[in-house]
């Protein structure tokens, strides 16, 4: 089992995960932020690697990815920084990003390197299920990496079953069909959606992401799911606070 699978097997509830972009706000901030987040009580992390054309992201994360690129971040730099990851951080780590940089790095090489530095899972939103199954699955499995797949309110039950089958850790439940950074609208529809997923009795737990920006949305997500992921709200916080490392505890305190 990788660290993610161990965490989910522990039965721990109300998990709080944080997304941030590697190399933002400054090139060397990646591990400092991870360390501070663990200390503040985050349960696991998603570290984004940059891409020039992030179609699923709103302005906040787009800006962070572009800044990271301008700062000189790329996969080689990132893996260099992550060489010290497991000396400093013990919570599970997921790498998240678009498929093209992974293809250029080489899928097998990327998975091998990720495992080597102590990464536990990958989220590649624009990697289709068929290509994952036929071309990527073995490389992930060989390196004990979990593949985390997205589900939206528009995803059919049949497809969710298939995603559940292909998952070995958790399913990333989008609060709405939306790009990142839109705020979550509390509605009966949301309860209906969470309830529908809950009633499917999937083998994998679900974690909610997109639109989780405060205690209310976090608690709503945790009511039906194992936890939630905060992305844009944290990236925005990093951009707005020069002394962000000292304030990360405060930020996490907004949620739990």
């Amino acid at each position: 089992m990788n660290r993610l699978q161990t965490l989910f097997a522990s039965g721990k509830k109300d998990l709080l995960s944080i997304y941030y972009t590697a190399g933002y706000p400054s090139l060397g901030s990646t591990l400092d932020i991870a360390e501070a987040l663990e200390k503040a009580g985050a349960d696991f992390l998603e570290i984004g690697f940059p891409y020039s054309d992030p179609v699923a992201d709103g302005p906040t994360i787009q800006h962070s990815l572009q800044t990271a690129l301008d700062n000189g971040m790329d996969l080689h730099v990132l893996f260099g920084q992550l060489a010290d990851l497991r000396k400093r951080v013990s919570i599970p780590i997921i790498l998240m990003g678009y498929v093209n940089p992974v293809i250029q790095y080489g899928v097998a090489q990327f998975c091998k390197k990720a495992a080597e530095v102590g990464v536990d899972g990958l989220i590649i939103p624009d990697l289709p299920m068929y290509e994952y199954e036929t071309l990527y699955k073995k490389d992930l499995a060989d390196n004990n990496l979990s593949n985390i797949i997205l589900v939206t309110p528009q995803t059919s039950d049949e497809r969710i079953r298939k995603i559940d089958e292909l998952s070995d850790c958790f399913i990333y439940l989008l609060s709405s069909a939306s790009i990142t950074g839109n705020s979550l609208k509390m509605s009966d529809g949301l309860d209906t959606y969470f309830k529908r997923i809950e009633d499917m009795r999937l083998k994998n737990p679900t974690i909610v992401g997109f639109g989780i920006a405060d205690r209310t949305s976090y608690q709503k997500a945790c009511q039906y799911n194992r936890g939630a992921i905060v992305g844009s709200a944290f990236v925005k916080f990093l951009g707005e606070n020069e002394d962000y490392l000292n304030k990360i505890g405060e930020f996490i305190g907004r949620f739990k």
Binding site: A56, D126, L127, P128, I149, L150, T152, Q154, A177
Partner: peptide, 11 residues
Amino acid sequence: GGAYIPEMLYP
């Protein structure tokens, strides 16, 4: 070719 799209566009 193929369809390398995030799940949000799948439907």
